[in-house]
């Protein structure tokens, strides 16, 4: 038939009842007189009806509480990451600084340990006398610049 192609294009819409009233009437009239299109409609109906026998599961309840909990977890983990960032940066800087300090030997704490004021003064006197650097002495002296300065000045 002349209109078959046009009608076939409308069969899915016809099955799903999506055609306008006028188009529905046209298709209905056509398939009454056209066995080819009638068979095509039968095929569409039969396949879709068979498939409709099986229903998909329905969502058992609202997912909102789960979604909200998941979102809060995500946000708190992100906040933790943000909070951790400066901490990680500071920690990294400390490591870099300590390595750098070690290389440059600018640590405020010398590798000398002060145990006894008298011992220090003796040690420093010996150093001055023999022109020996304090660092080379085998003494555990813990001090800072100020303390050393004061002792050196006091000699």
């Amino acid at each position: 038939m002349k209109n078959c192609r046009k009608i076939k294009n409308k069969l899915v819409d016809f099955y799903y009842k999506e055609l306008a009233e006028e188009d529905t009437a046209d298709v209905a009239a056509h398939i009454k007189n056209c066995p080819v299109c009638a068979i095509e409609l039968k095929v569409i109906s039969s396949v879709l009806e068979k498939i409709s026998i099986i229903k998909r599961p329905k969502l058992p309840g609202s997912l909102y509480p789960l979604i909200k909990a998941g979102l809060e977890k995500r946000i708190s983990s992100l906040a933790f990451k943000i909070w951790r960032a400066p901490f990680a940066v500071s920690f990294g800087l400390l490591i870099i600084l300590s390595v750098f300090s070690n290389n440059q030997n600018i640590s405020p704490v010398r590798k000398i340990e002060v145990c006894d004021e008298l011992l220090v003064s003796i040690a420093l006197r010996e150093c001055c006398k023999n022109n020996v650097k304090t660092e080379s002495l085998n003494l555990n002296i813990l001090s800072d610049d100020v303390f050393l300065d004061e002792n050196i000045r006091g000699l």
């Binding site: 998909r56 599961p57 609202s62 997912l63 909102y64 998941g70």
Partner: peptide, 30 residues
């Protein structure tokens, strides 16, 4: 979420074919 979750679940189930898996995907999508 309440407006679209049923449809979303049906779509996800069509792909995942598992109730819990579909729920996980819908949760993540929102």
């Amino acid at each position: 979420v309440e407006k679209y979750q049923t449809r979303a679940f049906s779509v996800a189930f069509g792909y995942i074919k598992d109730v819990e898996g579909a729920k996980d995907v819908v949760q993540e999508s929102f």
